[in-house]
């Protein structure tokens, strides 16, 4: 019984080896088995579209557009107010004035960043532009502006998140050098808070405008994707080759 299975396996391997491009085997014989396995895995794995036409159509419904408009209005106001307030702070908002709460507000000791003001204003202007187009029923143009507005909003969220991480590291290093108390002086949180909303909004908008090619063309595209993946795998294996060999040899010793 075992012999039969072994013979079948041998036949299968021979068949598999015939499918490998000769060039690759000649160049890297040690990779042949890996390549076959990868290729077989790929054949078996059916590619499913994550984003379907139905999904795109669903996201393009008027109800969704109305929700987007609502969210955009809120975000525009928040960005605009944040921007104006930070400009006031930049040009010297006095302690006893009514809007001074902005200067004082802080989360875990982090205050508002003063010089972000003009970025916040730019984002709000882009969103305002989008709103104007929405109200003029030009959804395509409106979505374009909102993609950029939410994109920059998310970008600055990420930048300030990195700034916080850098500030913490910086505080730790200065503490290590000078043995001082860690004092982190950073101002950030409005762009990060708003990025929580702008990031999904950005994703939603980009999905709304994906041009899906017909299913019948999918095999050709899959072929292209497979080639890209194969290229990546090949490079990876080439880089890791000595390591793989070393591991294999070690295992043989143990068993």
């Amino acid at each position: 019984m075992n012999k039969k299975i072994k013979q079948e396996n041998k036949k299968n391997t021979e068949k598999e080896q015939q499918t490998i491009p000769k060039e690759e085997v000649e160049a890297h014989p040690e990779l042949s088995v890996t390549i076959i396995k990868k290729q077989l895995c790929k054949k078996e794995r059916k590619k499913k579209r994550i984003i379907t036409q139905e999904k795109i159509d669903r996201l393009n419904r008027p109800r969704i557009t109305k929700t987007i408009i609502g969210l955009t209005i809120i975000l525009t106001v928040l960005y605009l107010v944040g921007g104006i307030l930070s400009i006031l702070v930049l040009f010297g908002l006095k302690e006893n004035e009514s809007w001074s709460f902005y200067q004082k507000t802080a989360i875990f000791g982090w205050q508002q960043l003063k010089v972000t003001s003009f970025v916040l204003i730019i984002i709000s202007l882009v969103m305002l532009w989008a709103l104007i187009y929405y109200f003029r029923k030009k959804n395509q143009e409106a979505d374009s502006f909102l993609i950029i507005g939410s994109g920059i909003g998310s970008l600055f969220g990420i930048i300030y998140l990195l700034v916080i991480i850098a500030d913490i590291l910086n505080g730790l290093i200065s503490a290590a050098i000078n043995a001082e108390v860690i004092h982190i002086d950073t101002y950030f949180y409005l762009p990060i808070l708003l990025a929580i909303f702008t990031t999904p909004l950005f994703r939603l908008l980009t999905i709304r405008h994906i041009v899906l090619l017909p299913e019948k063309l999918q095999p050709a595209l899959d072929g292209l994707a497979t080639e890209i993946e194969q290229n990546n795998h090949r490079t990876m294996h080439l880089r890791r080759r000595p390591l793989c060999g070393h591991r294999r040899r070690k295992r043989r010793k143990w068993f």
Binding site: Q140, S144, I148, H209, I210
Partner: peptide
């Protein structure tokens, strides 16, 4: 519009 054209619009 393609996404790229939309980005260019802005």
């Amino acid at each position: 519009w393609a996404l790229s054209d939309m980005l260019d619009e802005v």
